[in-house]
Amino acid sequence: MSQTSSTEEKLDHLKHYFVDSDQQFEASKMGMWVFLVTEILFFGGLFVAYIVYRSWYPELYLLASEELDTFWGAVNTAVLIGSSLTVAMAIRSAQLNQIKGLIINLWITIGLACTFMVIKYFEYSEKFAKGILPGSAYSYDGVEHEKANIFFSIYYMMTGLHGIHVLIGIGLMIWLVFKAKKKVFHSGYYTPVEITGLYWHLVDVIWIFLFPLLYLID
């Protein structure tokens, strides 16, 4: 608080309807947390579908998860955790006024996010080739269970929506890089970096649950 109320502070970012930077920062952060609540419940619906069907057909999940590659799932988990680390480092750089470090960390994060999507792309195309397609296009007969299509529907919905969130995150971070290059952020104002970071960590948290629930059924 003390470093933001110094007199030589830049105040270009301060909206007229806020009293000071702290109020604006706190409000933005709380807004992001409220948004994350909605994200958790949004994915929550899919987790409910997952749990209900798993409670009905446990053997289906055992059989069908054989088709998912644990190794690449684990690699992707590591990639996302790494990107969470770099985003946290990016916020730290912004807090310390190290704009160069902020930009570098953001680029690494974007790189890791793209890696995640590339791996996901190969996973998807390998399944498409086998005929494991979402919905009624499902034509694979390697899983001997009449409801195999439903497992993969849930799989595609969960990972697909998560993938869309990763793409949105990439877009947001590219935007942050541009803003950072224009010297918008400094230790007194880094709200967009902070709240994008929160969003990105949530994307990571959701994958932390998706990984064992989808890939690690032995």
Binding site: I40, L41, F47, V48
Partner: peptide, 14 residues
Amino acid sequence: LLFVMSVAFFLLMI
């Protein structure tokens, strides 16, 4: 509290 609440309501739903 927000974070806890979101998890709590998810648990309620399931």
